[in-house]
């Protein structure tokens, strides 16, 4: 097992480096030159003090200085990438990259990316945790019920509803729910994170937050119900058709025990593996929901940064998504080995 984990970790590491390299190069295609802009602004501020020839010389000097500072004094893509990661020294001999805690600078917010990204990430986590708990609480009992009562009216209805839920883009759910809950019924706020102008603390803050989060949570949950319900149903169906279930029934074990103890345990294996991947996938998927409900989350930040061409932020979020995906794969593999004793992962 230990060997397998190390092997997987190594593999994840290689893929991560490859992907970030691709991403880095894609974003370095952007026609923006921070050193040039900085040097230009500084020279412009000195315009009145120097003669034109001196200005040019000064600009060249400053440009070089800033290029060295930002690590763009070379055209070697690999060196630049390594500097960005933090394993290749800059001109002054020090490393200053991701590993040293330098995650880039947001032009739009005039702050380090790491501070820009902190609050949105907390919000997204809050949202996704809620959604996961609720979605699992609904889908798993529903899936089991449908599998056990296969062919019943409920099962058929759920089958139809889930294929609809599975095929619709999430923004249609958003529009639809806003229309029902905000426009028609007027129960919930259509967007925002808190009551405007309010400065609550403690429990009051929490309930206010929950009040504003209800609709996004409902939307996200509803859109993910379909997939999870179908998965649980199929897994349960497979489990129920196993020989051991027939044996258990033949021995006269109570139906309840057969379903929840014998079959469910077997069905759990595929479900667990998918749940992890699905939870991590929520991070990317909640982008549309967040922007629709004007939540200050990662997705909104991502879209906003793309509109303002704030590429350091985009780069970091993108890397975060990639990282999350890879970790998800790794955990899935490992858990798969843990819950299913038949899978030999030592190979």
């Amino acid at each position: 097992m230990g060997k397998y984990i190390i092997k997987r970790l190594l593999y994840v590491f290689v893929v991560l480096i490859l992907l970030t390299f691709i991403l880095y190069n894609v974003y370095s295609l952007v026609p923006q030159n921070r050193a040039y802009t900085d040097a230009k602004t500084e020279v412009n501020s000195m315009k009145n003090m120097l003669k034109p020839e001196e200005l040019n010389a000064k600009f060249d000097e400053l440009y070089l200085k800033y290029q060295r500072l930002y690590g763009t004094d070379t055209n070697n893509k690999i060196v630049r990438y390594l500097r960005w990661v933090g394993v290749w020294p800059f001109y002054d001999g020090h490393c200053n990259g991701l590993l040293q805690g330098n995650f880039g600078y947001s032009w739009e917010e005039r702050a380090d990316v790491i501070t820009v990204i902190g609050e949105p990430m907390k919000n997204t986590l809050f949202l996704n945790l809620f959604v996961t708990v609720i979605a699992l609480g609904v889908t798993i009992p529903l899936g089991i019920h449908c599998a056990v009562k296969r062919g019943s009216v409920l099962d058929k209805t759920v089958q139809v509803v889930t294929i609809i839920g599975h095929s619709l883009p999430i923004f249609i759910f958003c529009i639809f729910f806003i229309f029902i809950f905000c426009s028609l019924l007027g129960w919930l706020p259509p967007s925002g994170m808190k009551t405007p102008g309010s400065n609550y603390t403690g429990w009051k803050w929490f309930w206010d937050r929950v009040y504003y989060m209800i609709l996004p949570i409902i939307t996200l949950t509803f859109s993910s119900l379909a997939y999870m319900t179908r998965l649980t149903r199929t897994a349960m169906l497979d489990a129920l058709s196993m020989d051991c279930i027939r044996t258990a029934r033949a021995k006269g074990v109570r139906e309840r025990t057969v379903i929840y103890s014998h079959a469910w345990r077997n069905a759990l294996i595929p479900i667990i593996t998918v749940v992890i991947g699905w939870f991590l996938g929520l991070f990317g998927g909640s982008m549309i929901t967040e922007s629709m409900f004007a939540l200050n989350g990662m997705g909104t930040l991502f879209l906003k940064s793309m509109r303002t061409a704030d590429y350091d932020v985009i780069m970091l979020i993108e890397c975060f998504y990639v990282f999350i995906g890879l970790v998800g794969n790794l955990i899935t593999d490992l858990v798969y080995g843990l819950v299913d004793p038949r899978v030999r992962v030592n190979k």
Partner: peptide, 22 residues
Amino acid sequence: AEVVGNIPLLPFALALSALLAQ
């Protein structure tokens, strides 16, 4: 395939599209 499959589809496609818009 695994590397490509690990790229988050929507965010990456959005970013590429935004880049190309320039």
